[in-house]
Design a protein around this nucleic acid. Sequence first.
RNA 1: GGGGGGGUUCCCGAGCGGUCAAAGGGAACAGACUGUAAAUCUGUCGGCAGACGCCUUCGGAGGUUCGAAUCCUCCCCCCCCCA
Length: 415
Amino acid sequence: MTDGFASLLDELKWRGFFAQCTDEDGLAARLAEGPLTAYIGFDPTADSLHIGSLVPIMGLVHLQRWGQRPLAVVGGATAMVGDPSGRTELRTMLTVEQIEANLAGIRAQLAHYVRFGDGPGDGVMLNNADWLRGYGYIEFLRDVGRFFSVNQMLARDSVKTRMENGLSFIEFNYMILQAYDFVVLNRDHGCVLQMGGNDQWGNICSGIDLCRRVNRAEVFGLTFPLIATATGAKMGKTAAGAVWLSAGRTSPYDFFQYWVNVDDRDTSRFLRMYTLLPRAEIERLEQLEGADLRQAKQVLAREVTALLHGPAAADEAAQAAAALFGGGDQEDAVPGSERPAADLAGDGLALLDALVQSGLLASKGEARRLVRQQAVKVNGETVADELRLLTAADVQDGRIALQVGKKRHHHLRFG
RNA sequence: GGGGGGGUUCCCGAGCGGUCAAAGGGAACAGACUGUAAAUCUGUCGGCAGACGCCUUCGGAGGUUCGAAUCCUCCCCCCCCCA
């Protein structure tokens, strides 16, 4: 299980999860004493998490693999406030109903990664609305607010970066609420470690201070690096937008493809961070160079997809990709849609309409442009005529294969 | 509350009565080159229309004008200084 690593911290460092620790020696000593409880917070700003949350998620996974107890705290209350960290503008505020719905979605997704339950090392999911929502303002100020120095709060990076663009009072309070979370988790669940992205450093430190004052407890903080791709972009941006963990928002095929298409320079780092492959296997893959790196990316894609969607879905996605890019013939998982055969009757179905209705392109103008740029293919043949109509004659094996550019595919299947 | 400066197409940022769907940069997309990578070069980059062209957009609502992103009025929001 330890895979040659001396400790959890050792593995986290090797895998690239270690940015800063408030007291590394102290935490190492505490870990050596026996299992501990640690937590990471997630913002329920959408009903699905996206790839950007994968680092903290994997943080919980490693924690559990090393026998520690992970707490996933969903910020049902703090989402109503909005964390200014890493933001330059006011977040849109969510309604209670939206947050409730988002919580449910996120809970289901985390369950793919973390084993929740009542056992010793089982994870627990908590919602900070349970202890924050009913707290009275005056009481909260007296109990918690008195421990905070405005001078210190103003010195936080999360606040400083907002001084230019403005920071609302409600956001200014965020760090206090998050700090209080840590106090509650420490008091009621014995939690002694908070982890999070490096942009959470200030909030985490606030929590540690508060725990010391209120609970007289010694607790720790550990942050993960903020991940950007080799080209400097944020994780998970594609033509279609963010890469989501929800299969409904990002299909397993598209999810798989995202990882296959990562920059060469990111391959090794991502293998370490986003897969659970043994160290030796990763080190072997890291030896690959040039075009052979594709093999490493295939492994990366398969592993990451399997963790989220399961091995079967990962295989299916891999086979679909092989069919489209490598000459395999297993096409069932290629993204597609069903249409009634009647659409092809008469003059046929306008290609431009088909491209838009399939979701492949956003507008007919864009479709027209791309046809003129020789970027659209039907059944592998480049289309020259933007007025092209699809008819029954185009159907092969029960479907018409549409392609835009080199990588975007869609199969129209006819009943 | 007073004074000053702002809100422009995904982002930054020009424009300040017509030649503006709106300079420039970034992002993005496509083509070439490749390895489903990067870099580079070229093209595209509001919607509809085969095309002529039509429509919607420059914080919001009105108004002036043949004509407004550009002028006027009111309103909303942001930043800075003063109280």
